[in-house]
Amino acid sequence: MSILDETSEQRTAPRRRALVAARISYGGGSVTVDCVVRNISETGAKIAISEGVTLPGHFEIVIPQMNVVHRAELRWRRGGEAGVAFLDAGEGEPRAEGAAPATQAGTPSEAALKARIRTLEAEVARLRERILELGGGF
């Protein structure tokens, strides 16, 4: 992973301003962290994230409002902001909520389906924990 200075212009695509809720997922989907996309392009984004959160070099970023999921690489981090490069640039096209990315034949790839299953399993575990915290039971 190469951490680049935010001021050095390394972008290959123009970015658009944004203020969109997103979620970072890693550890096989077992860890999720909320963040906000501040600007975005076809090849990457700048996100706002709590300063106390440690990010791995590679993770998945889910942007529900845009109906996309990208595999991403951390490129730089400064305080509560970070720059990420999309490793699947061009593949993270809009799709139906919860759908996996399509292969050339139009069917979800096996890797994409496995990643989505891991994300959903982590979400179910998180929701179960929340129900228990609220005094509910199974």
Results as ranks from 00 to 15, higher is better:
Ser2Leu: 15
Glu6Arg: 14
Glu6Asn: 10
Glu6Gly: 05
Glu6Ile: 04
Ser8Lys: 14
Ser8Glu: 12
Glu9Ile: 00
Gln10Val: 09
Gln10Glu: 14
Arg11Leu: 06
Arg11His: 13
Arg11Tyr: 13
Arg11Lys: 13
Arg11Trp: 15
Thr12Asn: 05
Pro14Gln: 08
Arg16Val: 10
Leu19Asp: 07
Val20Gln: 05
Ala22Trp: 03
Ile24Thr: 02
Ile24Asn: 00
Ile24Gly: 01
Tyr26Glu: 04
Gly27Pro: 04
Gly28Tyr: 12
Gly29Asn: 09
Gly29Met: 11
Gly29Asp: 11
Ser30Glu: 06
Val31Thr: 15
Thr32Asn: 14
Val33Trp: 03
Val33Tyr: 02
Cys35His: 01
Cys35Thr: 02
Cys35Tyr: 01
Val37Phe: 13
Val37Ala: 07
Val37Arg: 05
Val37Met: 09
Val37Lys: 06
Arg38Met: 06
Asn39Glu: 08
Ile40Tyr: 08
Ile40Phe: 12
Ser41Cys: 06
Ser41Phe: 11
Ser41Asp: 00
Ser41Trp: 09
Glu42Ser: 09
Thr43Tyr: 01
Gly44Tyr: 09
Gly44Trp: 09
Gly44Glu: 03
Gly44Lys: 12
Ala45Val: 13
Ala45Thr: 07
Lys46Trp: 02
Lys46Arg: 08
Lys46His: 04
Ala48His: 02
Ile49His: 08
Glu51Arg: 15
Val53Phe: 02
Thr54Val: 08
Thr54Ser: 13
Leu55Ser: 06
Leu55Glu: 11
Pro56Cys: 05
Gly57Arg: 14
Gly57Tyr: 04
His58Thr: 06
Phe59Leu: 13
Glu60Ala: 00
Ile61Met: 10
Ile61Thr: 11
Ile63Trp: 01
Gln65Val: 14
Met66Glu: 04
Met66Tyr: 10
Met66Asp: 07
Met66Thr: 02
Met66Cys: 05
Val68Gln: 00
Val69Phe: 10
Val69Pro: 10
Glu73Pro: 00
Glu73Ala: 00
Leu74Pro: 05
Arg75Ala: 10
Arg75Gly: 05
Trp76Leu: 00
Arg77Asn: 11
Arg78Val: 00
Arg78Asp: 03
Gly79Arg: 08
Gly80His: 13
Glu81Trp: 06
Glu81Ala: 12
Gly83Leu: 02
Val84Phe: 01
Val84Tyr: 04
Ala85Asn: 04
Leu87Ser: 12
Asp88Met: 10
Asp88Arg: 08
Ala89His: 09
Gly90Leu: 08
Gly92Cys: 10
Gly92Arg: 02
Glu93Ala: 11
Glu93Ser: 12
Glu93Cys: 08
Glu93Ile: 14
Pro94Gly: 08
Pro94Tyr: 13
Arg95Tyr: 04
Ala96Leu: 15
Ala99Phe: 04
Pro101Ile: 11
Pro101Val: 12
Pro101Gly: 10
Ala102Asn: 02
Thr103Lys: 04
Thr103Leu: 11
Thr103Met: 10
Thr107Arg: 11
Thr107Ile: 13
Glu110Tyr: 12
Arg116Ile: 15
Ile117Gln: 07
Arg118Asp: 15
Leu120Lys: 08
Glu121Pro: 00
Ala122Tyr: 00
Glu123Thr: 04
Glu123Met: 03
Ala125Trp: 05
Arg126Lys: 09
Glu129Trp: 11
Arg130Trp: 05
Ile131Met: 14
Leu132Lys: 12
Glu133Met: 14
Glu133His: 13
Glu133Pro: 06
Leu134Phe: 13
Leu134Lys: 14
Gly137Ala: 06
Phe138Arg: 08
Phe138Leu: 14
Phe138Ala: 15
